[in-house]
């Protein structure tokens, strides 16, 4: 799995710098023991290392890996409404998931929403990322906190706020009337539409695109832009020819994360899209909690995971290969 996705926002140089005074190129043909100084741990160090990792390893192997094994395991088992899941290998769930028209629609809607949201997210993220990389001091801190603090506010609260804003006599319609965009008689029915889900998700994922983007713009030497302008490029050309290509790693990281979040989001589509616009996550939840069909739920979850990760790693390979 590509490093970029798993380290969202972390600078790509998320590795300790090589030791100064590292050996010059290989001189004598000794048997290669590894790649660097730290490869060869002393027995004492090995023990410390193992001891330090042990609690984390237990937690992650048992409960993280375990969870995946069970999702996958259940998705290959038969489900009967009376007896629950029955042991034995079957592809029925996948067949059902891939042939059912309504699931097709749900999957299609999930992908459509995720792509639109991520695309709009890029357009909206660039100005903010540029602003974040240009300003300093208190204004920057303020902008930064404004951008990221919603990140940590539960999605329920934000989806709830949007739903209250989108109701017929809500703030959005009032503002649009005040602006003269619509008439008092022509109030928009925003809630429980795909547009509502897209707006809600856009607000969720924007910080995730802005952050890696601004850090990769900020890492660029400001002299590069100055150099381009001194060579006769106007600000737009400078952005397109210098700033933008160099910000691609951040963009790839941010959009990958955005796509993953959209594909798996539950509460925003549920509260803003309503039961008539199910997406994959709400469907998985419905299968598990209301239909008690854990096997179909598992299959849907696995399809969601496999599809998302395949798209994201292809995307990363494509863009990083060029970069």
């Amino acid at each position: 799995m590509p490093n970029k996705v798993l380290n969202p926002g972390l600078p790509p140089d998320f590795k300790p710098e090589p030791n100064p005074g590292m050996p010059a190129p290989l001189k004598k043909g000794k048997q290669a023991k590894g790649h660097s100084e730290e490869d060869v741990l002393q027995p004492q160090q090995r023990l410390t290392f193992a001891g330090l990792l042990l609690p984390g390893m237990i937690l992650f192997v048992v409960f993280f890996i375990g969870s995946f094994i069970f999702v996958v395991g259940y998705s290959f088992q038969r489900f009967s409404p009376t007896e629950g899941t029955i042991d034995g290998f079957t592809l029925d769930n996948y067949q059902k998931a891939l042939s059912d028209e309504s699931i097709h629609n749900i999957f299609g809607r999930t992908i459509r929403i995720s792509l639109v949201v991520t695309g709009l997210g890029v357009l909206l993220a660039y100005p903010v990322a540029l602003a974040l990389s240009r300003i300093e001091g208190f204004r920057r801190t303020l902008l930064f906190v404004l951008v990221i603090s919603p990140l940590f506010i539960s999605g329920v609260i934000r989806a709830f706020a949007w739903s209250q804003a989108m109701v017929r006599p809500g703030i959005i319609n009032e503002v649009l009337i005040w602006l003269g965009v619509i008439q008092t008689t022509g109030r928009l029915n925003l809630l429980y539409t795909e547009a509502a889900v897209i707006i809600g998700l856009l607000e969720v994922i924007l910080p995730f695109i802005i952050l890696p983007l601004s850090s990769s713009i900020r890492k660029q030497d400001p002299a590069l832009a100055s150099a381009a302008q001194s060579l006769g490029a106007n600000p737009l050309v400078t952005f397109w020819r210098v700033t933008f290509p160099l910000s691609l790693p951040g963009l790839v990281a941010g959009t990958s994360l955005s796509f993953i979040i959209c594909m798996g989001s539950y509460v925003t589509p549920d509260l803003l899209g309503g039961p008539r616009l199910p997406v994959m996550a709400t469907e998985v939840y419905r299968q598990v909690n209301y239909m008690s069909d854990w096997s179909l739920g598992g299959a849907l979850a696995f399809i969601l995971l496999a599809f998302t990760m395949t798209v994201v790693s292809l995307y990363n390979r494509l863009l990083n290969g060029k970069g």
């Binding site: 969870s67 995946f68 993953i260 798996g264 539950y266 996550a281 939840y285 598990v288």
Partner: peptide
């Protein structure tokens, strides 16, 4: 951090 949470949730 980088997987759809719903998948982890149902697995768990």
């Amino acid at each position: 951090l980088a997987l759809p949470q719903i998948v982890l949730a149902i697995g768990y």
